[in-house]
Write a protein that binds this DNA or RNA. Structure first.
Lengths: 180, 180, 180, 180
DNA sequence: CATGAATGAGCGTTCATTCAT
DNA sequence: TATGAATGAACGCTCATTCAT
């Protein structure tokens, strides 16, 4: 691939990421192209349709997450520390996009598979932390994962914002109580 | 207003509520009219444009919330109990709609005002609970409100789902810790 | 269906028929709408896409042909007379459209079925004429039908133009010869 | 012209001929280039636009026809034999393309002139055959030419298919009859 | 008042043609 | 000279909104 083509591709992906985040997944394609400083035709040469563009971004986010997560699981001493590290890492990623797309894309596009992989990774971390006694045991791992997904997929999530903090605190075993 | 006109208006609002929840705020107007069992013309007679329809639903949700909240504040013995009651009550409401609309509508439409009112109410409850020592004091009331908003505005939130539970647990004073 | 809607539908079909004949099946939809004196939206209300429009016209032509053909088979004394009558009748019909569409449309759209029916009818007439000794017997009926199709599907075919005449003459039994 | 440039030009013309025959005159230029094994840029270097490409092919076909026809007129003993030979020869030629282009191209492009020349040649042959008493005299030569053009320009015409045979038979003087 | 037909601006996508590499 | 990336005009189609019935 030619150098300028490569640069264009990246500019498009970057512009799309920004605009999807700012205005949702329905931004008009011309707008994306314009923001990237290219013509629509160029956009379509690189991504055959809107979905391909969304997919590219979403898959990238999931791959980054999985890669980081696998590393964290090895690197960190405890499951809890790994969990916290991963959750913090998620903040910069366009995971909301990934989540909503994964729900509407058929298997074979690769996205549901990536999402499954990422869910599995999270579940492994949660189980380890529950084994240590740090994460509360009254919630089954997949539910914890789903719950973390909500926190982590908010548009505009920051690695140390209050919601993340409160959620992590609420997940500790010693915080279990009857709030009914 | 004639009785049948009134009934039409309600049927339209109900259909819109369902469809917005199910398929997002972009459902096409014909679909809503059809689901309500009326022609598009009738829809437009009652609501001059799409926004008016959204606004109607959103404002209704906020009014319900405010009314319930004010009652809870009087009725319940503690701030904590009031907070829990209100959070639980939110589950059935189309608050996600209200939130996203309120952000994009100018003052004067009434929605930002209602949102402000609801935020104030929440803040009062939070302050009271912090005063009692139940809600953690390291987070300023407005931030707590923002955080609750996220939890409560999820599409598909249930009054006793895990996320709500964990969040409420995490908000207790005794759960404060260093999660870094 | 309201009277004006009905009128619009007919105007659209008529305009489309003319334009397809004049400029081929790729005329732009806006042009058709304009020629019919309606907006594009109206065109699309009546015909969900270009194919539906083509299909409507083509199917109409085939139905007319089949109806006329069945009548001719009963009405005329000889197979030859029926054949000539039918061939002459074809001239005004947009059969070229029907032929080309039928080849590219899947069964279930109704067009291939109609084409089959029309072919069968033609074949019956041809067999009868061959039985009488008027149509040459060295060509199998389906081939005669195919051959007639070419003559009859020319854009601009006239009921008594030279090509039709020569073709009919050439089909007589007494004209068989070695032209190699 | 460099040898490889010459080869490219031929490959492009050949690919275009095939694709025009298979998929009509709207095939996209990239497809042609790809089929020819070159980039689009190369295609455009040799043929400044789509029409030039079509023109090249069409003109080639007409030149072949004219050359063969002139030879046949000298070589064959009778006008009839010349006519048959020429008609048979047409089968392999992309004359449909030539016909449709000639109708839409202005004089000066060379195509209408070539078509005129080919028509004249055909007319000469027909007149000679009518003089011999083989071709029917009730149709003026230009009309016979037009009629032969239809037969000969069908996509997929074969030199000895039924349509050609029947048409030639129908053109014989002794086949004249009242088919009304 | 209710209806649903008509309108046309707007978006996604394609492709002929140009031009930097 | 060959390449294929970039461009943007054009087309198919949708849908919010208006208005005749």
């Amino acid at each position: 691939m030619r150098a300028d083509a490569q640069r264009n591709r990246e500019r498009i992906a970057a512009a799309a990421l920004t605009l999807f985040a700012e205005r949702g997944p329905d931004v008009c394609m011309d707008t994306i192209a314009q923001a990237a400083g290219v013509g629509v035709g160029t956009l379509y040469r690189h991504f055959p349709d809107r979905q391909a563009l969304l997919l590219d971004i979403a898959a990238g986010a999931l791959r980054d997450l999985i890669e980081f997560g696998a590393g964290a699981l090895e690197r960190e001493d405890t499951g809890w520390q790994a969990l916290v590290a991963i959750v913090r890492f998620c903040a910069g990623l366009p995971l909301a996009l990934a989540k909503s797309l994964a729900g509407s894309l058929p298997a074979g596009t690769g996205l549901p598979e990536l999402e499954q992989e990422s869910d599995d990774l999270f579940a492994r971390v949660v189980r380890r932390a529950q084994g240590e006694g740090t994460v509360r045991r009254d919630i089954p791992p997949p539910d914890v994962v789903a719950l973390l997904a909500v926190v982590v997929c908010r548009p505009g999530a920051r690695p140390d914002d209050h919601l993340t903090t409160v959620m992590l605190d609420g997940l500790r075993q010693e915080c279990v109580r009857a709030t009914s």
